[in-house]
Design a protein around this nucleic acid. Structure first.
Lengths: 138, 138
DNA sequence: CTTTGTGCAAACGATTTGCAGGATG
DNA sequence: CATCCTGCAAATCGTTTGCACAAAG
C-alpha cells in the first residue's frame, strides 16, 4: 500500500537517512514481521524471490537504522543478534524449549520503579527478560 | 586457601563433573572475579603466568559448568558472551558510555511480579536489564 | 557534483569441531 | 579400564572491511 511506503520513506527522511531501495526494503521487512529476525534471516527473506540486497548492505542498513533509533537489537541467546523495529518500550519472553520469542507489553511490569537503584547510576531505559516455557511446549 | 579449593571441588563433584585442573581453574577464576569476563578474558587471565588451559578447553569447561548450573551467561552487547559465577538471582546495569557492567541486587526490583503475564506462559526466571550512564561517565 | 550507499570478495574474531593421546573415577 | 577431558589445528559462523562503481540529494 502506498501509504505504508510513504510512512517508511518519511521515517527515514526524518532521521536524515538517504532513502535507497535496499535500506527501504530492510526497514519495511522488519516492520512487517512480528518475530525478531537475525540479519541473515532478513537477508534470506529479502532475496527469496528476486535479488534485493547484498549481505554487506543488509548489515550496514541495520547499523544505520539502529544508530538512527528506528530499531533496536534484541539479545537473548549467546552469539545471536536479533532486530526489532518496534521501538516502543516493551519486554521479552523466551521459551527455553522451542526458542520462540514473544513481546510482553510494557504494562506487564508497570510496577517496576527505578528508585531503588544504587546512587550514581543514571538509568535511561530498562527491559525485563523473562525465560520459561511457552504454551505449545509444555 | 585450602578451604576455598575444597568448596570448588565439592561443587563440581556435586554436579557430577569430573574434577580436572583446567575445569577447576576456569571455575575458580570466575568465582574470584566480580566483573563478567568473556571466554577470551578468562583464557588470558589463566595463562598469564603459566600455561594452564587451552582455548578449546576453556570453552568446553564453560559449557560444562553452564549446563551444570554453576554459572550463567550474561548477554548485554551484541556478539559478546560474558560469564558470571554468581548464580543467585540478580539484575544487571550497563553503562552506555564506558561499558562497565554492575550487578544490581535482586531486591532492587522486588516489586516485580509475574501475575500479569499473558496466559500460557510458564515463567521460570526473569532479569531486569538497565542501561544508562554510570557515575564516572557523566 | 558532492556525498553516501552498494556489492563483491577477502578478512576478521569468536566459537566449535575432529581426532589422537592423556587423565579421571 | 571405560569414560570423559585436553590440546592442537582446521573449520565454521556471523559480522566487518576495502575498494571501485553507482545512486541520492
Amino acid at each position: 500500500m502506498k501509504n505504508e511506503a510513504n510512512k517508511i520513506v518519511n521515517a527515514l527522511k526524518a532521521k536524515k537517512l538517504r532513502v535507497t531501495p535496499q535500506r527501504f526494503a530492510v526497514y519495511a521487512n522488519l516492520l512487517s514481521r512480528t518475530d525478531h529476525p537475525t540479519a541473515e534471516e532478513i537477508l534470506r527473506d529479502l532475496n527469496e524471490n528476486t535479488p534485493t540486497s547484498s549481505q554487506a548492505t543488509v548489515y550496514s542498513s541495520l547499523q544505520a537504522l539502529r544508530k538512527a533509533g528506528l530499531l533496536r537489537e534484541v539479545l537473548l541467546e549467546p552469539g545471536i543478534c536479533r532486530y526489532d523495529a518496534n521501538i516502543e518500550p516493551h519486554h521479552h519472553f523466551r521459551c527455553r524449549c522451542c526458542g520462540v520469542i514473544k513481546d510482553l507489553p510494557w504494562e506487564t511490569f508497570a510496577s517496576v520503579n527505578l528508585e531503588g537503584l544504587p546512587p550514581g547510576i543514571k538509568a535511561e531505559r530498562y527491559e525485563v527478560i523473562v525465560e520459561g516455557v511457552c504454551d505449545r511446549c509444555e
